[in-house]
Design a protein around this nucleic acid. Structure first.
Lengths: 173, 173
DNA sequence: GTCCGAGCTACGAATAATTCCTAATTAGGA
DNA sequence: TCCTAATTAGGAATTATTCGTAGCTCGGAC
């Protein structure tokens, strides 16, 4: 499950260019951490990246791995699976529905669409396993977050502190 | 963001029937916990459910909430947002791609489909916020898990211990 | 090429999220 | 009603993630 070498190099070049463009320092740690994620096709966890990176840099800290992964995510070089919030979230809606996920606050909103309900899953997927359900996940910046950062200059790409990241979205009943 | 009362009742009836069918005891706690999730349209976290449930049952434990939520998930009455694993996972694939998520082991596999890349997002979504990207998330039981449980009787709906749930899927590089 | 400061890093301690252990309680069948 | 396997409360234990701090380093200015 490793990524083609050329593709990895391409991703690394992109990383370098984006990092320079954003005025972010290009440290050895960052490069190695990015390389570890970029060469894995397995959506590694922070812990898994940590283990991989320690092979070549035995002294990196897990903290650096986390900080770097979020930095890379904020730079748009990585994405996370599901919402970035730390905790699992549950959904009792049995109907066919789709999700709009705010990459800034982590809030997830439902939406419906009969067109999207009728998605046809390519045959190749059946080789991966049995299919139980399918839905669309849209990512973006929700209206509230857009409003709240309206004053902030340099809108556009998502960029925010790890603190902000966890601030919104909660609730039951 | 609360769910229509009739819909909640409908969901609760379904819960009762599924629980009876599975030979699972119908405790007061389970009913209230299910009700809390079923009447929220906000994809509550375990903590949020706990808070909601404590209003009517001040002595429930958070542990019971977790156990029950996973039980309900295993019964197919709830789903989780994203993989059920506890930890965030990162993805460095910048290409348009889609995800196949095994509900049993939590593994996430990529697949491609130009048809699905061309999804048209309904206009109503623009009211929720700006759209950055969209992809399809397919859920099912992956080939490996299917193979591993082949011997086990009563295949079909996902059912497994919270331990099994976390066993597979890892890796970087 | 060296020097300097802002930006980074390592490390261990602190928090959050989730699960485990065990004794006491209870649903629901006989 | 009685019995027992299943379930619960609660607190301790784990795991996941972040913070605070003091030292180190990248990369622009000289």
């Amino acid at each position: 499950m490793t990524v083609d070498r050329h593709e990895v190099e391409r991703r690394i070049e992109r990383f370098k260019s984006v990092a320079r463009g954003a005025g972010v320092k290009l440290t050895h740690q960052r490069l190695e951490i990015f390389r570890a994620v970029a060469s894995s096709a397995e959506h590694p966890s922070a812990e898994a990246v940590y283990k991989a990176v320690r092979r070549s840099m035995p002294t990196v800290s897990l903290d650096t791995v986390y900080r770097t992964l979020w930095l890379l995510t904020d730079l748009g070089l990585l994405t996370t699976l599901g919402p970035r919030q730390g905790s699992v979230r549950f959904d009792a809606n049995p109907e066919h529905h789709h999700h709009y996920l705010c990459v800034r606050c982590g809030q997830v909103l439902d939406f419906e669409s009969s067109d999207l309900d009728a998605l046809s899953i390519p045959d190749s997927v059946n080789r991966l396993g049995r299919v139980l359900s399918a839905h669309v996940e849209v990512r973006g910046v929700c209206a509230r977050c857009a409003r709240e950062s309206a004053g902030t200059p340099s809108d556009g790409s998502p960029r925010f502190s790890s603190h902000e990241r966890r601030m919104h979205a909660e609730g039951a009943s």
